[in-house]
Simulated assay, not measured.
Amino acid sequence: MDADTIEWIIFGPLIVGMLIFSWWAMEESHRRLDDPNDDRTLYLDQLPGKLALFPTGTYRVTVIRQSGNVHAEHIVTGTAQDALAAVLATFRRAKIPAVHIGTNTETELRIGRLYHDHRGRKEGKKVGSAHIALLERAEAPALAEPSFTIQPLGFTCDCGARAEVPFAEIAEPRACPECGVDATLTPDEVAQIEAAAEEARAEALERFRAGETTIHVERKITTED
């Protein structure tokens, strides 16, 4: 029995076993990708929605080659999504469509390609995994509550006289400045005006949070004076 035959008897089953294991690993990875309840294996586009990192701060982003050597490393200050975007850009350039999640916590994310790429003579230099570490938290600044100004409300008496009443005084007794007739609003009318003011305030606040800085909201109210 020659040396080549002996070598095949020794190493042949091992090679076949490795091939079978690689095939099984690929099939298992694809099965996990198709399972909506499995968060261990995800397509790149699914990662932003599953990210558990603290949302704002300073992060160290490290991309590692299949050989274990560092491919690239840099610091990202901003949001966790900014740090993840830097990783995803590298993985997309490396034509890696999906990854395995090793760690996904508030302080750390570890991801790697689904299986080792053995194709080509430079497989060790290919991107293999990535690590994002939270170095420092940065609390997002609280959104300042804007100030609201409600213009005085205008009233018209039956005599035709006009009067303006500050919003804070709408529930107080009042008389027409021309004819002296009682012009005090009823509780229902006061409640109607206050409800309209609160509705206008809610709309203004929503528009402010959407980015508007100069906001004017009008509400028309008809009362039976």
Rank of each mutant, 00 (worst) to 15 (best):
L51V: 13
L84N: 01
E106A: 14
K122T: 14
N104E: 02
Y115R: 04
T58G: 02
S67D: 13
G68H: 11
I132S: 01
G120C: 06
V76E: 12
I75A: 09
Q46Y: 04
Q46L: 11
A133G: 06
D82K: 11
T90S: 05
L51Y: 14
Q81C: 11
L47W: 03
A72Q: 06
G49K: 15
R60T: 12
A89Q: 02
E108G: 01
A83T: 10
Y115N: 03
A89E: 13
F54C: 08
H118G: 04
V127F: 07
Q46W: 11
D117Q: 03
R65A: 15
V127Q: 00
V127A: 04
E73T: 09
A72I: 01
A83S: 08
G120T: 03
G57C: 09
G120F: 06
H100W: 11
L84P: 03
I64K: 14
Y115A: 08
V61H: 13
G78H: 07
R110N: 11
E106R: 12
H100P: 00
E106C: 03
G49E: 15
A89I: 02
H74E: 10
L51H: 06
F54K: 09
G124E: 07
R93D: 06
A86K: 13
A72P: 00
R121A: 15
T107C: 00
T79A: 10
D117F: 01
R119L: 03
E123K: 10
P48M: 15
H131E: 08
A130K: 10
T103H: 09
N104R: 06
N104W: 06
E123W: 12
L53T: 01
H131W: 14
F91C: 01
P48W: 12
R121C: 07
V99N: 01
R119F: 05
P97M: 07
K125L: 05
G57P: 08
A52M: 09
S67V: 14
A80C: 11
G120R: 03
A86T: 11
T79P: 12
I101S: 09
R119Y: 10
V87W: 03
Y59H: 04
R92F: 07
Q81V: 14
A83L: 09
P97V: 15
K126M: 10
A86S: 13
P55R: 14
D82G: 09
T79F: 04
